[in-house]
Design a binder for these strands. Structure first.
Length: 384
RNA sequence: GGUGGGGUUCCCGAGUGGCUAAAGGGGGCAGACUGUAAAUCUGCUAGCGAUGCUUUCGGUGGUUCGAACCCACCCCCCACCA
């Protein structure tokens, strides 16, 4: 596309943004797939899309300081309603003046609603019509978390993007179970939608439907009708195969409005992210870079992982990835980082976390550049 | 020189007649991890032609149907006393 048209397209989408609410703008769409370049305008700053959001469940992206996140180029991070409600609790969060102030992070935060804990802490909860009775995984204390409670907590956290309270459907699920879960989720999200939020907080709905195309479409349609600021595809990365995950996106994405951001929750591997972008997804979060970093795996250019603890790196004095520009790769060797893991020094965990988070943030950057330069198909091919 | 304690599979270490190829750690190796109950978890770790066989508990003999485990001698280590 000639530059003049490009500029026009950008200008048009900007006007378009003003006509809506300027929360989300599409800057460019790929001509060969559904990938799109955009920007989220949030209270605490703009977020370019496609974007990767590091996960900071308990008011910390594990092993990293806000300064390091800033230097790595993180634009938005996650927090979690369930975990922050339990500790430090809302009294302290209120006194602190919200999650951003509490943790010293000035850029946007997206908070998950606790819906994922309905899935991950399945043995410690009971689903009720208006929410979930949990027994705290810390001390067993009983408490109730539903759409109303979750919205109220996220208000106190004062996050920039608030997720509706859903039931993350377990995998595998029968059609009957998936449908029942979908109906419950739609109800809960309608309740979530009614709750007041703070000025400037954006609210996302979540699509469920498990592995059933028609249920995915139905859920997407029902949730869209509730008119959220953005839409997430949930109930993925719960143990299903990659083709099943892709199928869920293929089923749901076309039913979501073009002028709102799409967020694929909990995903994923580099390839899964690239494939989802090709299908029109704009936002991602995943614990993979931070968790694998703590567990001794480093991401390599092709998306595979290097087990740094392996004995074969004992005398390997090259960087994790010679092509990588992160602090860990610029300054330290495999042999040294392996040694740190070997003796249990926390710096090892920190260095791999820095490398992995850099990898994911950089992947998102490369994706954005590729869409802008019409080379996304080429980038996509690197991960096949 | 004397007295006492001890030498176990890569390392530390449990095991005192058959249920012991030998507990438990460590180390090593492999794997898992996807809106974080995870700086975590799971396997394997003598050899082999492998539902069994061979070698192994400092060494050499011996007792016994059977020994890492009991006996004799030898080698080595540690502690204390001379």
């Amino acid at each position: 596309m000639p530059d003049i048209f490009k500029a026009f397209a950008v200008a048009f989408s900007k006007i378009n943004g003003i006509l809506t609410d300027m929360f989300y703008e599409v800057l460019k769409k790929s001509e060969t797939c559904s990938a799109r370049l955009g920007v989220l305008h949030l209270r605490r700053g703009d977020v370019p899309t496609p974007i990767f959001m590091p996960v900071g469940t308990r008011a910390s992206v594990k092993a990293l300081s806000p300064l390091e996140l800033e230097e790595l180029g993180a634009k938005i991070i996650l927090g979690n309603t369930y975990h922050l409600f339990l500790r430090p609790g809302m009294e302290i969060m209120n006194l602190a003046g919200g999650l951003n102030r509490f943790m010293g992070w000035e850029r946007p935060i997206l908070t998950d609603s606790g819906g994922f804990q309905v899935f991950s802490l399945a043995t410690l909860r009971k689903i009720m019509p208006d929410g979930v009775k949990f027994a705290s995984h810390i001390d067993g204390t009983r408490f109730f978390l539903g759409p109303r409670e979750s919205m109220q907590i996220q208000r106190t956290l004062d996050s920039d993007i608030v997720m509706a309270f859903d039931e993350c459907t377990p995998y595998p699920a029968t059609r009957e179970q998936a449908e029942k879960s979908l109906v419950l989720t739609t109800r809960w999200e309608a309740m979530s939608r009614e709750q007041p939020l703070n000025d400037g907080q954006m609210r996302f709905g979540i699509v469920q439907g498990s592995t059933f195309d028609d249920l995915r479409k139905r859920s997407a349609t029902e949730i869209t009708a509730l008119d959220f600021d953005g839409y997430a595809i949930g109930g993925v990365s719960v143990g299903e195969s990659e083709p099943e995950m892709i199928a869920a996106i293929d089923a749901a994405a076309p039913c979501l409005p073009q002028d709102r951001p799409r967020y694929l929750m909990g995903v994923g591997t580099p390839r899964q992210i690239v494939e989802a972008v090709a299908r029109g997804v704009d936002m991602f979060d995943c614990v993979m870079p931070t968790r694998l970093g703590r567990h001794g795996s480093a991401f390599m250019p092709n998306g595979e992982t290097l087990p740094i603890k392996a004995g074969r790196f004992q005398k390997d004095f090259s960087p994790i990835d010679p092509e990588c520009g992160c602090y860990a790769c610029r300054n330290f060797t495999r042999a040294y980082i392996r040694h740190l893991f070997n003796v249990g020094e926390i710096l090892g965990v920190r260095l791999l976390t820095i490398h992995n988070v850099h990898y994911f943030l950089n992947l998102a950057r490369r994706i954005r550049e590729a869409i802008a330069n019409d080379t996304f198909d080429r980038l996509r091919a690197e991960f096949e």
